[in-house]
């Protein structure tokens, strides 16, 4: 089963998202800030990272840049989660190295689609490789 790293400072959101994804059968690892997110990405080598953008210590953009800058973790797809309904920061997230983005509040069905799409992409890429 795929392992997903959730980087989210809000406890309720973290709890809710982790439980809902676990119910869908994913293995969940969690980090509460950007710094921990980068650490966990290296130590846990997840299959995918769900990255909140407004994080304490190290924000989501910087964390993503670091993950993507590290060759060990650069292959992990990152889906940015922004609280901005207007998706105003979409370009910025892509620029920072995110592979996709979604807006909060989470529409679970839509998010699942995006997660599966990214995982499939990695699978296709490694298959080809």
């Amino acid at each position: 089963m795929a392992k997903i790293l959730i980087v989210e400072d809000n406890e309720m959101n973290r709890d809710m998202l982790s439980r809902r994804l676990e119910r869908k059968g994913y293995q969940i690892v969690m980090a509460v800030d950007g710094g921990e997110g980068v650490e966990k990405a290296t130590s846990e080598t997840p299959d995918l990272i769900l990255m909140d953008m407004s994080l304490p210590v190290l924000d989501g953009w910087e964390a993503t840049r670091r993950v993507k800058a590290n060759p060990a973790t650069s292959g992990i797809p990152v889906i940015a989660l922004t609280a901005h309904a207007m998706a105003g920061d979409r370009d910025k997230t892509i620029e920072a190295g995110c592979d996709d983005y979604d807006t909060k509040p989470i529409d679970l069905a839509r998010l699942l689609g995006k997660i599966e799409a990214q995982l499939q992409k990695v699978k296709d890429a490694s298959g080809v490789a």
């Binding site: 309720m12 959101n13 998202l17 509040p105």
Partner: peptide
């Protein structure tokens, strides 16, 4: 933020 929690 709280709404997200309520809806979620």
């Amino acid at each position: 933020t709280p709404l997200n929690a309520i809806i979620g």
